[in-house]
Amino acid sequence: MHMNSAPHLLAEDRPEFDRLLDEALRTAHERPELASLGERLNAEQLRTMAIGAIALLTAAAAAEYDHYVKLRVERRDEALSGPGSAEDQRAGQGEGDDGAGVSAVVAVLAPVLAGTAMLIFLVVGYTLKAVEPEPAFADTMLTAGWLFGALTVVSLLFAVIGLLVTAVRNRATEVVAADEPGAIPDEVAQAREAWRHALLERGILPFLRDALADPSVGPVHPSPRTPKAGRIPNLGYTRPDFTSPGSSSQGPRPGYTPPDFSSPDFGGPETESP
């Protein structure tokens, strides 16, 4: 039975090993040393072999992995030690978002309401002026309509300015978010990349290269020999040594002697004594 996980590889990092292995197999045609992929061994067979030897492959990058895990644990501890500051930042962001939302609603509704009022007052005012005799408040309706028209223009101007300010503010927020530790390659991300590079270059690729170069490994050789590098696991099997029940290797058959049957010792009536 092959090992499916390395003793020193955490479960949360196992998917990263699988991704690196799949990527190496997918881009094998771009590497001259892996050009023979598919002649004796296909990608699925190589993947099975690599998973069986995962402990050996990950051991090739053990130093980088230990450094990466250490930094990751330290960063998590630092994040847990100061949860209040992160919550305050999230709360401040939430308050800012609420304020921006109210401003956006006002900026949209003000021109609409002012424009609607303008239309109503102007239509009513001009309708009244067409009536004979002209009502006294017709001019008042027209004046109110033009006032709402001016208010519509002003509110539209403020809405445009508000949209521009919001766009600039969001752009600045995106730049700040990009500068946060989790968004750019920090010390932990660099250690992770160093581990990935070491695992690929010193573990996965050499294993695949040795497997493809070893003529004893393949579907035509059910019992491959153990390579000198010690990287490729033995994928063969040996048949059980079945022997027939009567083979000579078991020695001579056990013999037996039949029971010695004899007739009872008696004589006829003439031999009996009187």
Rank of each mutant, 00 (worst) to 15 (best):
G99W: 08
A138L: 05
P224V: 14
F261V: 15
L142Q: 09
E12H: 05
H2S: 02
E95H: 11
D98M: 11
L156F: 11
L205G: 02
L147R: 01
D241Y: 09
D88T: 14
V108R: 09
H29Y: 09
P269C: 06
H2G: 10
S273L: 07
L113A: 09
A229N: 15
F207L: 05
S81W: 04
D241H: 13
R47N: 11
E174K: 10
L109N: 04
S262I: 08
Y256P: 02
A6V: 04
E33K: 13
G96M: 08
I51D: 02
E270I: 07
P133T: 06
P111Q: 02
G162E: 11
P219L: 06
E78T: 04
L21K: 06
V123A: 06
G182A: 13
D13V: 02
H221V: 13
R47E: 12
L164V: 15
A189Y: 03
T143V: 10
E201M: 09
R75I: 00
T238R: 10
L57F: 03
Q190A: 12
L57P: 01
R192F: 09
S244P: 02
E23Y: 08
A211W: 04
V176S: 11
G84C: 08
T27H: 08
A61H: 01
A60W: 01
L122F: 03
G268M: 05
E33V: 05
L212C: 06
G218I: 10
E12T: 03
T27E: 00
I54M: 06
L151P: 04
A60S: 13
L151M: 11
P135Y: 01
A91Y: 12
G96L: 10
S36K: 10
D210M: 03
D210G: 07
L164G: 12
V69I: 08
L9P: 00
G145I: 00
G145W: 03
L163M: 10
F207T: 02
R19P: 00
A91C: 13
F17Y: 05
G99Y: 09
P32L: 12
T116C: 01
G52K: 07
G99I: 12
L119G: 01
K228C: 01
R14S: 06
P7I: 03
L157K: 09
Y237M: 04
E272W: 03
P254I: 09
D260W: 06
G84R: 08
G38N: 12
P252V: 02
E16K: 13
E187A: 15
S5C: 12
A183L: 14
R202P: 00
A191Y: 09
R225F: 10
V102P: 00
E87F: 10
G149V: 00
E44A: 10
A144R: 04
V188Y: 07
E33F: 04
I120F: 05
V124H: 03
